[in-house]
């Protein structure tokens, strides 16, 4: 009996040994040198593969970081400044601070503000509706409301508001990866500089029509009246194609333009209530 056991042990052991030797030599022969820092950095990255850095996945970004001479222009919006400092430490390079961003939806065309003029009966995707026509309202620039952006969001930072039919971004969860920006066929969503206490001032409209038709299509449309442009002391506002735009890097959050806007197209969020109540839109009903 003992003989059989011994034989088994020896034969199996030698098979194992030979296999191990073969594996060892093969792994030595075909070894590919890889910078160990790539793995280290990948470990540090969030691993969401969201594409917010502009690379396909965290691994590619890590490789690019290791290869890069400076870290200028390379930024992981999810991890933010603290992560980039860690990465810089691993690489022994200088961290270049990038401003944290946050996505905003530049459209207020809710059911209430934008009268419907037709019914879309196709596939419930913004891209398909955009391909077909201007949309259910007379505003051919605004939100279509089928939620391509919400489906694109990997961080549960967006939802569709059923009352307004518009997408809502949850600031705390938004990592500014830009997936929604890319998903939106109408370029409504913009990444803006994140300010203290998540304060925001922006023109919440993308309608490039002239004032009259724009206003007719939507009560809160930008009509390019130039009032905000005239009141801004910091050159933060530009008017192009019948549309005002506030540069989030130049804006000082003085809130003067918000008061001036006759259609409430400029909105402010997360500010303390004003002491003196600004006179709001004169509810003119022209039509």
């Amino acid at each position: 009996m003992g003989h059989t056991v011994l034989l088994t042990v020896i034969s199996l052991g030698s098979v194992g040994l030979v296999a191990a030797l073969i594996l060892y030599f093969i792994s030595q022969k075909f070894k590919v040198y890889e910078d160990p820092r790539i793995d280290q950095i990948q470990e540090a990255l969030p691993g969401a593969n969201c594409g917010g850095c502009g690379f396909t996945g965290c691994r590619n970004f890590a490789e690019a970081l290791v290869k890069a001479d400076t870290l200028d222009g390379l930024n992981c919006p999810v991890g933010g400044a603290s992560l980039m400092t860690d990465v810089a430490k691993i690489l022994g390079k200088e961290a270049v601070a990038a401003d944290p961003l946050v996505a905003v939806v530049r459209c207020q065309g809710s059911y209430e503000h934008r009268p419907r003029t037709s019914v879309y009966d196709g596939v419930k995707e913004c891209s398909a509706a955009h391909y077909l026509y201007g949309g259910e309202t007379d505003c051919h620039y605004g939100c279509l409301g089928y939620g391509d952006c919400v489906r694109a969001c990997n961080f549960d930072a967006m939802y569709m508001d059923e009352k307004t039919g518009l997408p809502v971004i949850i600031d705390e969860k938004c990592v500014a990866c830009g997936a929604c920006v890319r998903a939106c066929p109408r370029d409504i969503i913009e990444l803006r500089k994140k300010a203290k206490k998540d304060r925001k001032i922006f023109v919440s409209c993308v309608n490039c029509d002239k004032g009259g038709p724009a206003r007719k299509a939507c009560r809160v449309a930008c009509i390019a009246c130039n009032k905000c442009y005239n009141v801004c002391e910091f050159d933060a506002i530009t008017i192009k194609d019948n549309l005002a735009y506030i540069d989030s890097f130049k804006c000082t959050f003085c809130r003067k333009c918000v008061v001036e806007c006759p259609t409430n197209a400029i909105i402010e969020t997360n500010f303390p209530p004003r002491k003196v109540k600004a006179e709001t839109v004169e509810e003119e009903k022209k039509e």
Binding site: S118, V119, G122, A128, L132, Y133
Partner: peptide, 10 residues
């Protein structure tokens, strides 16, 4: 809503 025309792709 029924007063509005429906629009869809062919």
């Amino acid at each position: 809503m029924s007063n509005y025309l429906k629009v869809s792709l062919s």
